Computed example of a mutant assay.
Amino acid sequence: MNHSVALDLRETAAPAARAAAGRIADDKAMLRAAAEIARDLHKARPAIFWGDMLASAALGYGALAATILAPSTGWALLAGTVAVLALYRALLFIHEISHLKHSDLPGFRLGWNVVVGVPLMVPSFMYEGVHNLHHARTRYGTVEDPEYLPLALMKPWSLPLFVLISALAPMGLLLRYAVLSPLSLVVPPLRRIVRERYSGLVINPSFRRRPAEGAERTRWLMQEIATSLWAIALLALTAANVIPLRAFLIFLGVIGAVTVINQIRTLVAHLWENEGEAMTVTAQYLDSVNVPPPGLLPALWAPVGLRYHALHHLLPSVPYHNLAEAHRRLTALVDRDSPYHKASYAGLPGLVHQLARSTMGTRR
């Protein structure tokens, strides 16, 4: 779903300083080194993908059941925390699916949708065909990038709003699949709105999704129908008291917590300092964030390789389980003054503080 608010939140100061970020020249030594060290790192390993995804989902659903059945508030909070973190990790495989060479992992997309995507009402079509635009050389950071907003140029109160609005995602997903999807089948103008505005995990409110074609369109429709049937059944069974209201609300609460954590991760995935100008690959890298070891917490809030988000923008086809090795090799290979080192940060608090200061700094 589009979790952003279509408001003009930008400040008017310092456009020249921000525009200069897009004119950073490419560091050819870094780009050559990245390509060199990754030659043997592009192949996904099925055992890791399937094992990690299924184990995360099993732990998440088990903890969700424990949360619903917990004998006390304390146990419910503990189990709920485990459910949120495990399902969050399972859900983030949607990012890997958008980059996969599917012949390397036959059936994984279908398996993930059955186990995670449809039950959590975030089928993979909502990211496939959208996320790749964020990696397009001429789109990143521009108004045509579905996953970019110049948050560093926005008003300070836009940051908490950006996070808090994501808590409404469970209700938005139910509305999208239980109500809008069926209605759009008989109301063509509504179908266009649903397809353009409510069929992608984006943060840019001006983004409009184009219609899918061929096999992609078939997959989209199958996933959408399955998710719609699931959402309708969920509401119907709750209304009939087959599913207790408390269990239903806990389920929505867990999904809401997952989307809030993901929105916080998104908040610090980039520096968000570009104001629409096309950027070089090096500029895109420096506008992105790595949070490498020794920190441990990023493994929880930026799992499935997303702690190496800047590196991912250099090597988008390297699967998540090889990014740590790619980082180790590249760190050892490039010079001390290489731009590669400038995208690594210590952790979440410092990144949030830096972004908040940026919003303050753009004010006159």
Rank of each mutant, 00 (worst) to 15 (best):
G117M: 05
R363C: 11
L87M: 07
V258C: 02
L245F: 14
L180W: 03
N262T: 11
G305N: 06
V258F: 02
L201A: 08
L9S: 00
L229C: 14
F207I: 07
W112V: 09
V260K: 04
G172Q: 09
S184Q: 08
K43N: 03
L180Q: 00
H3V: 08
L221M: 14
V260I: 13
I250V: 15
A310D: 02
T67H: 03
A20H: 13
L174I: 11
T359S: 08
I68F: 00
A86R: 01
P160V: 11
P15R: 04
I264E: 01
A20E: 12
H353E: 14
A14I: 03
R210K: 15
G80Q: 02
L41V: 01
L180G: 07
Y198H: 15
L333C: 06
I261T: 06
R219C: 10
P188R: 13
E196R: 15
H313F: 05
K101D: 15
V281K: 15
V118F: 05
V291Q: 03
S184D: 06
T362N: 12
A17T: 01
E277V: 14
P244Q: 04
A343N: 07
H131S: 10
V318Y: 00
R265C: 03
L314P: 00
A324P: 05
D287G: 06
L351H: 08
I68H: 00
T142E: 03
H95N: 14
V291E: 05
V114H: 15
S158I: 05
L164N: 08
H270S: 04
N113D: 15
E277S: 09
W50P: 08
L300W: 11
Y308F: 10
A14R: 02
Y320F: 12
L173C: 00
A76S: 12
A44G: 02
P182F: 06
P150T: 10
M121V: 02
H327I: 09
V130F: 00
E144Y: 09
M53E: 10
L234S: 08
L64R: 01
Y61D: 07
L296G: 06
S4N: 07
S158M: 13
A44M: 04
S103A: 13
L221E: 13
G214M: 08
L355F: 04
L78K: 06
I261G: 02
E11C: 00
